Amino acid sequence: MIKRRVYIIAGEPSGDLLGGRLMKAMKNQYDGEIDFIGIGGPHMEAEGLNSLFPMRELSIMGLAEILPHIPKLLKRIKQTINDVRKQKPDCLITIDAPGFTFRVAKQLKDSSIPLIHYVAPTVWAWKPGRAKKIAQFLDHLMVLLPFEPPYFEKEGLSATFVGHSVIESGIELANGDQFKAFHGIPADVPVLCVLPGSRQSETSQLLPIFKQVAQKLKNNYPTLRIVLPTVATVAQYVKEDTLSWELPVLVVEGESEKFGAFKAADVALAASGTVSLELALAQTPTVITYRLKKMTHWLAKRLIKVKYASIVNLLHNQEIMPELIQDDCNVDRIYHEIVKILEQGQSNSDHIQALESAMQMLGQGEELLPSERAAACVLSIIEKGK
């Protein structure tokens, strides 16, 4: 078999995870040798990548954080473009991080290298004009959501639905009973899982509200236990904040602890985001919330074109998971929804069936995992050439 050379770029931890799984699947599917080069983090490095430079240089959020780094980022973009041309790979795979990856791909559109992007911009939610723009320089797009391809195909860009990476998260291996036993939580007490977000801009808005909700719940459910899975980006802030709560909060870190908490919980209170898909996969009854600063919300209302925040609700075009956004994200409304779940339960067959249906739409139960479908797509493109 011909030895293949694949250039692959990720710019943030989520992309690195996708990249690592994709590299592993490609090696498993290709009979010959694949030489991976590019930019990535620990997951991609574990699969044999020597990163051109540390990926953390690209993991910058927010305008205020980006501005001081612009000269260095521009230098890294030029360095990457030059390296791709020098390496002459069989294809270039860019993963999410459009601020960096699209700038690289644009400069290579006239090359003979097939340009493949993994994770579509959310043109269905806002700024639909982006579909036409990226169709001018990309050769193929691998998307996570089943309704995404038509948005790009109508602009002339080939798109393949490969499935959502949440399917490969390993949530099904978690055990709620073991989580409770390990943390000394009695088997028969109700558990509330609180997830205030992974950015301080989110947690600072939601934690004060969640604190009041938790206190109100504790007054009526005295045996209630509260578990708060967090991530490194906000862990210190969360730990310090919850010290002032009038009731004990078990703060846990790491994927296995998070998934164990999902399985142990009777109900979850979560910031809108990917975590809502993880909770749906765990079949944890969940109340989705979000709150922005007033000016940001005013702008968002004029830009965002979708009815729901949660992917599960978007897939079904109805509110399967209750959503309380902005002014609705208040103590009384949240308390009411959580009590409704605790008293009536959402573990009924219709609700579970709706969650299972959403996961099937995202690729659960398919013969190939999302990373395997993505690998097959890339290898097919390499075989055909540009």
Rank of each mutant, 00 (worst) to 15 (best):
Q29R: 15
A214P: 01
K218F: 12
E240F: 00
K386Y: 11
D188E: 15
A235F: 05
I226G: 04
A135L: 09
P370H: 05
R291I: 10
A174P: 02
E153W: 02
L92C: 09
M295G: 12
P190A: 06
L281N: 05
G365P: 01
I209N: 10
G273F: 15
A187V: 06
I81S: 00
L115T: 01
V275D: 05
D266F: 05
T242E: 12
V194D: 03
E366T: 07
P196M: 13
A261E: 14
G345C: 03
V166M: 12
A235I: 04
M61C: 00
K154F: 06
Q360M: 11
Q136F: 05
Q136S: 13
L224I: 14
L22C: 14
D83C: 06
R225Y: 10
V238C: 03
M142I: 14
N330C: 11
Y237C: 00
L277D: 08
Q212T: 14
L63A: 09
G41K: 06
G170V: 06
Y237L: 07
A280W: 01
N175Q: 09
P285N: 07
L173Q: 14
I60Q: 08
E33F: 13
P68R: 01
I338E: 05
K27F: 12
S165F: 07
Q107R: 13
P190Y: 07
V194L: 08
V143K: 01
H351N: 03
K24H: 10
I334F: 01
N219R: 06
G11W: 13
T289L: 01
D328S: 14
Q346I: 04
K127M: 15
F100D: 06
R225D: 09
G32V: 12
K239A: 10
Q353K: 09
S111V: 09
I171V: 15
I66D: 10
N219A: 13
T284Y: 00
P68V: 12
L269W: 10
I167G: 00
I66C: 02
E33I: 15
G99C: 00
V6I: 15
L324I: 11
F53Q: 04
R130Y: 13
A270S: 15
E366Q: 12
M321Y: 08
G11P: 09
A181V: 04
E202F: 11
N219W: 00
A375Y: 03
E240D: 13
L74G: 07
E172H: 12
L299R: 04
V287E: 11
N82H: 11
G254I: 12
M359S: 00
D16E: 13
I334Q: 07
P285F: 08
L17R: 14
G48K: 14
L217K: 07
V166P: 12
S198I: 00
Q29S: 15
A64D: 13
E367M: 08
A181M: 07
I116G: 01
K307A: 03
L303E: 03
M361E: 13
V252W: 01
P71M: 12
K75L: 08
L157F: 11
T242K: 10
I311A: 10
G385N: 13
